[in-house]
């Protein structure tokens, strides 16, 4: 699975992109966030506060119960500030 981080989330995680081998028990966005938090302190800190980031699955905004699979592109980023 490809995971992308943008803006302040990228700064916090320390990379803009990582490819992970998705454990079979991780079936939705919430489970993925929980799993990432367990990987190391950097991910735990970056993803600690759910109000500070948004999630996209395959370039569409996704809720926590949205299913995820190994072929998906997942992105984490702060609330947007364009315009």
């Amino acid at each position: 699975m490809r995971i992308l981080y943008f803006a302040s989330l990228r700064d916090k995680v320390g990379t803009g992109q990582e490819d992970i081998a998705l454990p079979s028990e991780v079936g939705n966005v919430q489970a993925l966030i929980d799993w990432l938090r367990e990987q190391d302190e950097t991910h735990a800190a970056a993803l600690a506060d759910m109000s500070m980031f948004r999630v996209a699955v395959n370039q569409e905004y996704a809720q926590l119960d949205h299913p995820v699979s190994a072929s998906d592109e997942i992105a984490f980023f702060p609330p947007v500030t364009g315009g």
Binding site: S8, F77, V80, T81, G82
Partner: peptide, 11 residues
């Protein structure tokens, strides 16, 4: 809509 939905970030 763009300001709240389009994935742009300003630094």
């Amino acid at each position: 809509w763009l300001k709240t939905q389009a994935p742009f970030w300003k630094r």
